[in-house]
Design a binder for these strands. Structure first.
Length: 896
RNA sequence: GGGCGGUUAACUCAGCGGUAGAGUGUCACCUUCACACGGUGGAAGUCACAGGUUCGAAUCCUGUACCGCCCACCA
């Protein structure tokens, strides 16, 4: 891969380079974690993407940030294990395969369970690694040899072990409860799998006649958003404190259509102000009603089947879909004169997170995890800081949820997933729960046993991810070495689904938190701030971005935008900007390589460094420290920005320009050698610093550098080097002069051909000396032919056509440009006037401040001193400006 | 109904007690031997609004407005 004589293209073309390095890293085994390493361990588990998934920007961001950590820690000398994996994604995958079957005119019932499951496995073999390849393409430096799948053998074992242990401790139970039912997927859903959508609905006021008049009432009017559920009503509830209905409590109403007599009960949960203050109770189809009925020992009556069609209990409505039934019920009531009124009303409708079908709360026999006993230690762990959220604000979200947590419905009526390890005895109905498949009932020894048909919620296996992937329940070396993991990086929307449950399970089964830090990254929106969604058509496809701008550019964009606690608005233009940055880096490398040539030396005596060398080395040292600190604090955006600024605005804009003469050999062979050495050294370190962010281009460039190893991944992370503060400061002053002269040049329309002489004044001796050292640089970079550095107060003599004041290190530095050039007096005097006005303003406010007793007394001394110094400087500046203005006026008149 | 976050240059965002910063865009000039995916220079902001704390507030506190998210069983 070395290309001694190869000349690099002017533009960096990412395509081939990226492919080549993905393969190369794998060949070299550089991303593999070592067993029995004496390096300190650093482990992260990847949030396993769904096998049905394709890489979206969220994955791209999260994986990029984790990759930065992994690469950084590796270079820092850690034994890094970034463990990859994929999730079997129960319902999602089943849906995909069912759709495939539908295209063939089949359905899963036609196939039968075992064939269907085989079919899903086949699908997984074929398409399951799509997203993994996309992650590889993104540069994710996972240990791909340790890839895990939530349904592989080891993990399935862990799932059974956990289920059995929780069951035997009474933390898993089976029972009839009201759950969220998806009538399309035909399965129960956990609370979290239901998404609420505000929908325009109606509030129907319906009259239920009282069996016998009570307290002057002949009927009760109830308000409901779901008239069809009245068929399953088993009571009407009113608030016992509601005087309107006091006498009705204890009496009965007759339910229309079905002529069922149901009691009127008193329950404090009823809001008197809402509707009529009378609430119909449908225990089998409403969460709240279920609770009320439980308090009063009421029966529950299901009136819908698994597809949300009305069942035989619904009498004449049987067989109708719930919405048709709603229409018919309303019409029927109207016919009976029992519909009092209808009001428009906004309802929050629960929808299935997979298929958006409106969920039907249904009474059903399901398996549950009793979470309260698990939640308590999980809350405690975060409170004690054993697990830390970054940004910390998310801890409150976590606590809130833990506090109000409800039992977790873990059974799903689908076929794809971990089947529940419970066997029902057909003779004695005992349930045998076991890690190994039993052959007989553990109670009556009957061999007539059947395994429960339900599978577990996908998140059940995900909850074990941090230890199941490391080999648990075996006590493997990986488990010993890498648990607890160091960081979990994920998005806020799965704090409940996943993070909280991992903490609970980790504490329960490992006795230790699963990770030290939880980094919650930003949510990516489109350029308009809209959430990306297929229906909006505003999805930015990471693969397209990577094709068009290169993976590095895309990664760098995501990183630079990843400020903590804030959403990201992703705009293509940003990616383009960072693509340009990559190109800039590429050309910096080209320039460096072009200049290494014969004079290049590996070692150079530091005593030979000049001011520019020492300046850039100092800046590099500062940048190194900034980047390291920022990564450690998860401020990836700060790190990216610091590096961007350093590369472009310090290294390229200044050092490269400052060193050009040296590199051309115009200042002798020694200078040439030293400059080449410094430039290539700085580039080398810069590449290392950038590598975690933009791995491909840095590897590629690194491979061309003399003395480079097989991969930049094996290099150590740079430590901040020696800083030459004073000399770097002097260099900054020189740069200030250069900028000032350039400024004058442009603003005064000084033609390139004009001879420019420059006079620099300062009272400060050190500054004068510093600038004097940079005279050569000023000449070259500002295009000035003569430079003189004088003590302030000396007469500028005849060189009075113009001047510019500029601040440098809090002191005023002046640059006089002599006659000889064409000078536009009009423009110049305007500029001076403007500057003067600005200075006067600043001065006025400073004077006010300094005449303020409070300020003088309370502000720290150094602040006051600083302000005094500033005022003095301003005063000087003002004098120069006004005298300059006077002189220009005079000249203008003479000339005119 | 609770809770959280946002409001800074045309756009996207940093800054979070000492009178404003970046990138993109824009304007002018530059086909200079790393790069026009480039260079140099410029213009551009009462830091949402109103009060308060402070010698001093974009920055802290209290309200208001508008945007966005999360949670919640008023049917």
């Amino acid at each position: 891969m070395k290309a001694e004589e190869k000349t690099l293209d002017k533009r960096y073309e990412p395509g081939d380079v990226e492919k080549r390095w993905v393969d190369r890293w794998f060949e070299l085994g550089l991303t593999r974690a070592k067993t029995g390493s004496d390096k300190p361990p650093f482990c992260m588990v990847i949030p396993p993407p769904n096998i049905t998934g394709a890489l979206h920007v969220g994955h791209a961001l999260n994986s990029t940030l984790q990759d930065i950590l992994a690469r950084y820690k590796r270079m820092k000398g850690f034994n890094v294990l970034w463990l990859p994996g994929i999730d079997h994604a129960g319902i999602a995958t089943q849906n995909v395969v069912e759709k495939e079957l539908a295209r063939e005119g089949l359905d899963r019932h036609a196939l039968g369970r075992s064939l269907f499951v085989k079919r899903v496995w086949a699908w997984k073999e074929k398409y399951g690694d799509t997203i993994l390849n996309q992650l590889k393409r993104l540069g994710a430096s996972c240990d791909w040899t340790r890839l895990r799948f939530t349904m592989d053998e080891g993990l399935s074992k862990a799932v059974r072990e956990v289920f059995v242990r929780l069951y035997s401790e009474g933390l898993i139970y089976r029972g009839d409860y009201i759950i969220n039912w998806c009538p399309r997927c035909h399965t129960a859903l956990s609370d979290l799998e239901v998404q609420f959508e505000e929908t325009e609905g109606s509030l129907w006021y319906m009259r239920y006649p009282l069996k016998e008049p009570a307290g002057g009432l002949t009927h009760l009017t109830v308000a409901t958003t779901r008239p069809e559920t009245m068929l399953g009503d088993t009571a009407v509830a009113v608030n016992p404190a509601d005087e309107r209905y006091t006498e009705a409590i204890g009496s009965k109403v007759v339910l229309p259509f079905v002529d069922r007599e149901i009691p009127v009960i008193g329950d404090e949960s009823v809001q008197m102000e809402f509707g009529t203050g009378a609430l119909k109770i449908t225990p089998a189809h409403d969460f709240n009603d279920f609770d009320v009925s439980a308090r009063h020992g009421l029966p529950a009556l299901k009136v819908m089947d698994l597809s949300a069609r009305m069942n035989e209990e619904a009498g004449v409505f049987a067989g109708l879909d719930r919405y048709e039934a709603r229409k018919k019920v309303v019409e029927g009531l109207e016919g009976l004169g029992l519909l009092e009124k209808v009001e428009p009303y906004k309802v929050m409708l629960g929808e299935c997170y997979r298929c958006s079908t409106v969920v039907e709360p249904t009474l059903s026999k399901q398996w549950f995890v009793r979470v309260k006993p698990l939640a308590a230690p999980a809350t405690e762990a975060v409170r004690e800081g054993r697990t830390r959220f970054v940004p910390k604000a998310w801890e409150n979200t976590y606590f809130d949820w833990m506090l109000n947590i409800r039992d977790w419905c873990i059974s799903r009526q689908i076929w794809w997933g971990h089947r529940i390890p419970a066997w029902h005895c057909l003779d004695c109905h005992h349930i045998t729960v076991s890690t190994a498949d039993p052959t007989e009932c553990e109670k009556c020894a009957s061999s007539r046993i059947e395994q429960d048909t339900d599978v577990l919620d996908t998140w059940f296996s995900s909850a074990l991810w941090p230890f199941s992937t490391l080999g648990w329940p075996e006590r493997t070396e990986d488990l010993e070495t890498f648990y607890p993991t160091m960081v979990l990086s994920t998005s806020f929307d799965i704090i409940f689904f996943w993070v909280a449950r991992m903490v609970m399970m980790g504490l329960k089964f490992m006795g230790e938190v699963p990770f030290r830090d939880v980094y919650i990254h930003a949510l990516i929106r489109d350029a308009q701030g809209q959430k990306m969604s297929k229906s909006r058509g505003n999805v930015i496809d990471p693969l397209v971005m990577m094709d068009r701008f290169g993976t590095d550019a895309f990664r760098f964009t995501l990183t630079a935008l990843a400020a903590q606690g804030r959403d990201i608005r992703l705009d293509e233009e940003r990616v383009e900007g960072y693509r340009n940055f990559c190109n800039k880096l590429w050309n910096l490398a080209r320039f460096t390589l072009m200049n290494l040539g014969a004079g290049y030396a590996e070692e150079v005596d530091p005593a030979l460094y000049n001011s520019a060398d020492r300046w850039i080395l100092t800046r590099l040292s500062v940048c190194t420290e900034e980047a390291s600190k920022a990564i450690e604090a998860y401020n990836f955006d700060d790190a990216a920005r610091a590096l961007y600024r350093f590369v472009w605005h310090e290294l390229c804009d200044w050092y490269v320009e400052l060193s050009k003469k040296d590199l051309r050999g115009e200042n002798g062979g020694e200078r040439r050698t030293v400059a080449a050495h410094v430039l290539s050294g700085v580039l080398n370190d810069t590449l290392k610093l950038l590598h975690p962010f933009i791995p491909f281009i840095t590897e590629e460039i690194y491979s061309y550098l003399p003395g480079s190893g097989e991969s930049i991944m094996e290099e150590s992370w740079p430590e901040p080097g020696e800083r030459f503060t004073e000399e770097a400061g002097a260099m900054e002053n020189v740069m200030e002069v250069i900028r000032a002269v350039r400024n004058i040049r442009t603003e005064m329309n000084v033609p390139a051909s004009a001879r420019l002489e420059c006079l620099c004044f300062s009272k400060d001796r050190e500054m004068r000396q510093g600038v004097a050292l940079g005279v050569d640089y000023i000449k070259v970079l500002a295009g000035v032919e003569e430079v003189a550095v004088k003590e302030s107060g000396e007469k500028p003599g005849d060189a009075v056509s113009a001047l510019a004041g500029s601040r440098a290190g809090g002191r005023v530095l002046e640059v006089f440009v002599p006659l000889g050039a064409h000078v536009d007096f009009d423009v110049e005097s305007k500029r001076l006037k403007k500057n003067l006005d600005k200075v006067m303003d600043e001065k006025a406010s400073l004077e006010k401040k300094l005449s303020n007793d409070g300020f003088l007394k309370k502000a720290p001394e150094e602040v006051v001193a600083k302000e005094r110094e500033k005022l003095r400087a301003l005063e000087e500046k003002r004098e120069k400006l006004s005298s300059g203005l006077e002189r220009i006026k005079g000249l203008g008149e003479v000339k005119g």
